[in-house]
């Protein structure tokens, strides 16, 4: 995973949002003069002085969510899509689907397509394919959980089927923790 200690300064972008709905409206500062970078900070009050290495974010505008990412290209390239089919026992009401990247710190909830029983992810064309996993988390009743996970390569695979099977919640948590 990319980390703040890697030499990626000068190539970061700040996003903020006040909600967590399916269509989260991220706001970002596109001004080239706005720069966010990790560095050493000295934070002090009357009682203490703390040295800290990392990012300093100004909080405001009623936002609750903040994300620092690699700077996006700003281009509007062609879109690509991956479509995920799944077992008959699950549906859009009892299941959440995600793409989880293997090598980048990114997780994206897939969109429902109730008409053709698919979960979809539409994304701008990538510079290079990104490997990861499609994960299906399902609850079919009180304490009845199903879990499915399949390897995928964004930018290469276009359709994929994910098999789900009953799993204990402790086992699901163990798998998620290992991602």
């Amino acid at each position: 995973m990319k980390d703040v200690n890697e030499n990626t300064n000068g190539n970061s972008q700040l996003f903020s949002s006040s909600d967590i709905t399916n269509n989260t409206n991220w706001h970002t500062e596109n001004n080239d003069n706005f720069e966010i970078k990790a560095q050493n900070w000295s934070i002090s009050n009357a009682e203490s002085v703390i040295s800290f290495y990392g990012y300093k974010i100004s909080i405001g505008d009623n936002n609750n969510w903040y994300c620092i990412s690699d700077k996006l290209s700003g281009e509007s390239p062609k879109n690509q899509q991956i479509s995920v089919s799944f077992d008959a026992i699950i549906n859009h009401h009892n299941t959440i689907a995600y793409f989880v990247s293997d090598h980048y710190n990114t997780v994206v909830k897939l969109e429902d397509n109730d008409k053709n029983r698919r979960f979809n992810l539409t994304f701008a064309s990538l510079k290079e394919p990104i490997s990861g996993k499609i994960i299906l988390l399902s609850q079919l009743g009180d304490e009845i959980y199903h879990f499915g996970m399949t390897n995928v390569v964004l930018g290469k695979d276009e359709t994929i089927n994910v098999k789900s099977e009953p799993k204990d919640i402790k086992d699901i948590k163990a798998i998620l923790t290992s991602l």
């Binding site: 990392g54 609750n64 969510w65």
Partner: peptide
């Protein structure tokens, strides 16, 4: 939310204008 990958399952979608957001740091504050 960015110290463990699985925490991001409970965060907003990491997509901006269809571009995937590669998150270095993500936090929630209220």
């Amino acid at each position: 939310f960015s110290d463990k990958t699985y925490n991001l399952l409970r965060s907003p979608r990491l997509v901006y204008e269809n571009q995937l957001i590669f998150c270095k740091k993500m936090f929630y504050i209220s």
